[in-house]
């Protein structure tokens, strides 16, 4: 089997990357360059920025990342079910519904705890 049956996928990936790289390279080669001190500054007109651009983020946002991974694992385990859904029939459908229902309880709990609220 060619590339494990993913030959078209890899060819697509290679060509899409090549399109992006080609656009960047061609514009880099063809574009006229006349750099100056003013052009390199962050804002051409307006306030002069001071210091570094990096700031600390609140740890609260980490909760979103953890919740994201949890629901991603849920989606991942529904993937093999979806592939052979027709062969497995009603029993597997009920199994998947129980699986989703338990995690739906978790989602309700997260809403109750205001975990999904984007706080500043």
């Amino acid at each position: 089997m060619f590339l494990g049956g993913f030959g078209a996928f890899f060819a697509f990936a290679v060509f899409s990357v090549m399109f992006a790289v080609a656009a960047l390279v061609v514009s880099f080669i063809l574009a006229p360059k006349a750099p100056s001190e003013n052009k390199k500054s962050t804002y051409e007109c307006g306030m002069q920025p001071k210091g570094e651009g990096q700031i600390n983020f609140s740890v609260k946002y980490y909760m979103f990342a953890i919740l994201f991974i949890i629901f991603e694992i849920e989606a991942l385990f529904l993937f093999p079910w979806a592939v052979i859904f027709k062969k497995l029939g009603l029993f597997a459908l009920i199994e998947a519904f129980i699986f989703v229902f338990v995690l739906l309880l978790g989602l309700v709990y997260a809403c109750q705890k205001d975990l999904l609220e984007w706080r500043r």
Binding site: I73, E74, F99, L103, Y109, A110, L115
Partner: peptide, 13 residues
């Protein structure tokens, strides 16, 4: 596994 993931959500909460 779903219960384990639920425990993860509760832990985050």
């Amino acid at each position: 596994l779903s219960l384990l993931l639920l425990a993860g959500i509760v832990g985050v909460g």
